[in-house]
Amino acid sequence: MNFELNENQSKFLIRIADTSVILGQRLAELCSRGPFLEEDIALSNISLDLFGRAEELYKIICSLEGNKFSPDDLVYRRNERQYFNLKIVEQPNEDFAWTIARQFFHDCYAKAVFETLKNSDNSELAGLSMKVLKEIKYSHMHAKDWMERLGLGTEESNQRLQFAVDHLLKYVEEIFDFDELDKMFLPNYKEIESNWQSEINQTLTACNLNRKEIPPLSMRDYRDGFHSEHMGHLLSIMQYLPRAYPDAKW
């Protein structure tokens, strides 16, 4: 199947859609494995929001591309190099602190992106963004509260969160290495980065965490379909069923 995209808007949106679906999959892995019942359901709720968001974005992409493929095709039939998600969201659930730090970093960024997209000329995208912003507001609050609880909790919770933050910061640089396409759809890209940095710095300080000088990884850009070693494993699980049983209906 040929997944080449022709429209600039769909080339840009697939980055957001892929980021949503991959983070959704990471959170879905925690279903029935949450630290306690209420949190298990909270993470599954957020996962479902991310899948729903991704599906709506894929629908917009499919219609921009003349419906040559469906949202299911995009999710289940693309290979690793055909995915354009941020590397930070494919990082595994090492422990609850990783899950929370990853979510918080993502939500701060996603909030800014959809704030901008709600002014899009594409009315479908603008409408979707309004709806998505409410979901992100909740998810962001949920993640931020846990940042505080873990950062200001026990010595162990603080250390674990610090470890997660140190690791995940390695994947931040590429987010803000905006290319022409990003700049076309996020004209306020400079503000997006500076707001993200200041929110993260403030939160880390308030949570008794340090922002260390983290040398970025020399990994190639997610915009060209490059990934960390975890992505293939994630896809092999996510895509197993439709690849093994192509005619399956659900």
Binding site: L37, E38, E39, I41, A42, N45, M141
Partner: peptide, 20 residues
Amino acid sequence: NCHGYDKKMAIQNARDLYTR
């Protein structure tokens, strides 16, 4: 009912359990 260490966590857990 639901669990929660504090008021804020309790109201968020209640939201996730009972109003989804």
